[in-house]
Design a protein around this nucleic acid. Structure first.
Lengths: 147, 147
DNA sequence: GATTAACCCTACTAATTCAGTAGACTATAT
DNA sequence: ATATAGTCTACTGAATTAGTAGGGTTAATC
């Protein structure tokens, strides 16, 4: 139940981008340096994020990356799913399920309930937090959540 | 954000055991066959579950495995943690954190909030569901939960 | 007390995934 | 023109995963 480096770096890089893009396109190199991530590895990550239409790029000198939408409209869930595939604790819940298991076993049905609940909880939480929430103040603070 | 086969098999096997242990120790072979899991692989899983004191074993002919405690007192979270290590979406939240990252980067602090919330949500959910809940009726049905 | 059903445990291995590198190409501001 | 910066594919070494192999030990039963 761990995020890969790609997912973790991706979220960090997106936060970094959110904080800096007001000054125009941010070169990948800047972000890579600040976050201590290999430039070429981050390049791959940004390629996927662009294809998922979460960021857009400006080529040529003074180019770089920008968020594709307002930071309040990009959720952490979208970033994670773009980089790690569908959020699903077990194979058979990731729709293109041709992996390890395909619900052949009777008893499986008892466990699937847990995984569905878990997926919904994780997805709900991550989809409910935007980059703006993280970077410019947490909306949840209004409700005084109990941690 | 996917469970490994070990975690998934482990939960399924524990459910299987819960349903059958009333008739005395259940041989590993029975469970492996019913669940379609390699016997030797399941053996390794049960070794870890026994060391985590979630199951106990009876050796010799007519031996097998039993739950170490009442099924209502064994949570899915315990099973998963026994087999996959601490529930933590990123390395630096798993206490023995000597992995990839150790919060060296300033911006990291903005993302860590999400991962803490995620961990707490996942842990809370999995610790709140027992084997008895799954096998003998869901307590949550009383509260008519949405979804 | 031999047999045998069952658990116990370590070591190995093939396949996959992960994290990162390399390097060549394309666009554009100056 | 040239320098800057994104685009893209392919490769590689290390780690993890999923599973095998095979030799133990324990104890019920004949």
């Amino acid at each position: 139940m761990r995020l890969s480096a790609k997912g973790e770096y991706g979220v960090r890089a997106m936060i970094s981008l959110t904080l800096e893009e007001s000054g125009g396109p941010v070169p990948l190199r800047n972000i890579a340096e600040k976050e201590g991530i290999s430039e070429q590895f981050l390049e791959q990550i940004f390629l996927e994020l662009r294809r998922a239409e979460l960021i857009k790029s400006v080529r040529g000198p003074r180019g770089g990356y920008l968020l594709a939408r307002n930071s309040a409209e990009i959720s952490i869930g979208e970033i994670v799913e773009a980089l790690e595939g569908p959020i699903a604790p077990v194979d058979c819940l990731a729709q293109e399920g041709s992996g390890r298991n395909r619900c052949e076993h009777v008893r499986k049905c008892l466990s699937i309930d847990v995984w569905i609940k878990l997926r919904d909880a994780v997805k709900g939480l991550l989809d409910g937090i935007s980059l703006a929430d993280l970077c410019f103040g947490e909306k949840a603070e209004k409700t005084t959540a109990m941690v």
